[in-house]
Every structure is written in C-alpha cells, then in structure tokens.
C-alpha cells in the first residue's frame, strides 16, 4: 500500500507523488493547483475524521475531506 496524505501525521512535511483512483481526481487536484512534486504539511485533523487542514507550498492553506486526502499519494521527504 502506498502512503496517502490521509495517513500522514500532523506536522510532517511530505511530497505529492500522484493521485489514486479515477482520472477525475487527477483532473480536480491538478486544476486546483496541487501538482506532483509540491510539498504539503498537515496542519490539523478534525474530530471524528472530519476535514484536515493542509499547508501547501510556502503560503497556501486549505482543508480537504479525509476521503479526498486518501486520493493523494505522497512520500516522505528524502525517500
């Protein structure tokens, strides 16, 4: 199993590798500017598996539902 963004702990910086599932998600994430090679850090996770807050690049912040975070395949830096 590959590591997805949903599995990463708060505060760990990771790199986006690819997108899981149907081509639809790849489309959506790329259209929203989350590209392979980008660095992301999980800022916080909500109660009961709610959305997770993410820092993207140097100064972007957004939140993603956990189901969508599962679609982003990542790797730890330096791996």
């Amino acid at each position: 199993m590959s590591l997805t963004l949903a599995d990463v702990d708060v505060g760990i910086e990771v790199e986006v590798v690819s997108y899981d599932g149907e081509g639809l998600y790849e489309f959506k994430f790329i259209s929203l500017g989350i590209l392979p090679g980008d660095h992301v850090v999980i800022q916080s996770k909500s109660l009961f598996g709610g959305p997770m807050a993410i820092k993207h690049g140097e100064w972007n912040f957004f939140a993603l539902r956990k189901d969508y975070a599962k679609k982003i395949i990542v790797k730890k830096l330096g791996e």
């Binding site: 800022q43 916080s44 909500s46 807050a53 100064w59």
Partner: peptide, 19 residues
C-alpha cells in the same frame, strides 16, 4: 507573501483547528 503572516496563521490555526 509575508512569511510573518504565514507563521501567524499557522500558529492561530494550531489552536483554532485543534481537535
């Protein structure tokens, strides 16, 4: 973007979005 503001947002969010 000012890095100071980014840092501030990170700090506030660590409390505001805390479980």
């Amino acid at each position: 973007h000012s890095t100071k503001k980014t840092k501030l947002t990170e700090n506030i969010d660590s409390i505001i979005l805390h479980k």
